[in-house]
Design a binder for these strands. Structure first.
Lengths: 245, 245
DNA sequence: TAGTGGTCTAGACCACTTA
DNA sequence: AAGTGGTCTAGACCACTAT
């Protein structure tokens, strides 16, 4: 194998073609999260490239957060997490002042026709079925989120065979284990609106109280939409910070 | 001049020391926004470094948004703007559906003792004076923001000599022109709270209506706080989006 | 046509991790 | 001690911009 093996557009620079090649290995699962990729020396031999070119390709994937380097150990496929999600900016602290993963409870789970908003978000056909899940998330005995979750039935049918009590507190590792679907990134949109009757009941606030609405579309490595989620939480405990330049 | 000229910690790699050197030239104003910096060939000669090392130093500043490269033309100091500010995520569209810079009106301007929150934000001494400005921002004849702005009097005294009507719609270019203070970056924190009486009057909403509060600390190139700003706007027209991975 | 940044090579030596 | 990524060199040639 050598540089001519590198697919994609021949007009592209070598480091970008190598980058695409590595990205494909990650999204196909050939290189799995948490595991090391071949060493730089091996990559130079495999593709007959100079070390500088290989490093530049790796650099771009590190910059995009797909790989992490560790001097003396190797370069690893990063395990995606969602530390920068809006969720993290709700002040969910326990009595010791530490952040904590909220408890979850699935309240309903079933298959149905996808409403139009979900068809758009998940890029489905007009008649495709979806799995719908309603979930609440709690911390310190208090409900902090009420969630509506939609998944394409074609990829997630196996979830229907599992008792909702066994879903655990984190869904994405569960999706991976049960259905082989790996969430790599997400887009979130934040808005504020008054609580409707259902939401106010779920969050134990008065109807009309402002709630923060987080709309999330979770994507696979190859950018296929895997999950559409609408989460509503109290606005009074929300705090989000950015740096701009 | 050669590599030994590069200041800062000798244990640091050369490309980081060159980066620090260039950063200093930007923050001191020796290299000004919008102007080109020396070519890569000149930098290699000046500091007796290999081209790869110079490029790596430039790379980091480009990644941080301080420089922009333009093939065939040169490398330029970026003009800071605030397109990613929370402000941008209020749906301020005119009747043609375009975004627009809101109109501004200064309602009060004066010098006073800094309250404690401002002392903390601007890193002032306990007895330092500040300039306080109250401003509203409007679009389509409607008030969309009510703002409280504090500036260290030591740096911004000249503002008091200007008629508030002449401040214009954008403050940062005005700060630079009048006081030589250049805003390079900012930190913003977003929260939601019910409107107090003053805010509800300013925004023409009922008291208790949810408002989005944007707290901003604007910094110079060398990270000195230059401005502390509290902006309040209607929550129902706010929409913010992020991508996470 | 001259000058700029963009890509690429083929090494060298260093710092760190693991065994 | 062996193997990894981290830094650095000293060029070469290409693509693009300005004149």
């Amino acid at each position: 194998m050598n540089a001519s093996t590198l697919g994609s557009d021949l007009r592209l620079p070598l480091y970008q073609r190598l980058r695409d090649e590595m990205l494909a290995k990650i999204s196909s699962g050939e290189w799995r999260p948490g595991e090391p990729i071949p060493t730089e020396a091996e990559l130079t031999k495999t593709y007959s490239l100079a070390i500088g070119t290989v490093r530049k390709a790796v650099d771009t994937l590190v910059a995009d957060g797909l790989l992490t380097r560790s001097q003396g150990r190797g370069t690893y496929v990063r395990r995606p997490d969602f530390n920068s999600s809006f969720f993290r900016f709700f002040r969910q602290v326990n009595s010791s002042g530490e952040h904590q993963v909220p408890q979850s409870r699935i309240d309903s789970l079933g298959i149905e026709q996808a409403p139009q908003a979900v068809i758009d978000a998940l890029e489905l056909g007009a008649t495709d079925a979806v799995i719908r899940m309603q979930r609440i998330r709690m911390a310190n005995e208090r409900t902090i989120f009420s969630e509506d979750i939609w998944l394409p039935a074609s990829r997630f049918a196996k979830l229907l065979e599992v008792d909702p009590k066994d879903f655990g507190n984190l869904l994405y590792p569960f999706y991976e284990a049960q259905c082989g679907q790996l969430v790599a990134s997400a887009k979130e949109t934040l808005t504020v609106e008054p609580a409707d009757l259902q939401t106010s009941a779920a969050l134990d606030v008065e109807s009309g109280t402002p709630v923060v609405v987080i709309e999330r579309i979770a994507l696979s490595y190859d950018s296929t939409p895997l999950e559409y989620r609408l989460s509503k939480g109290r606005a009074d405990t929300f705090r989000y910070q950015i740096e701009i330049s």
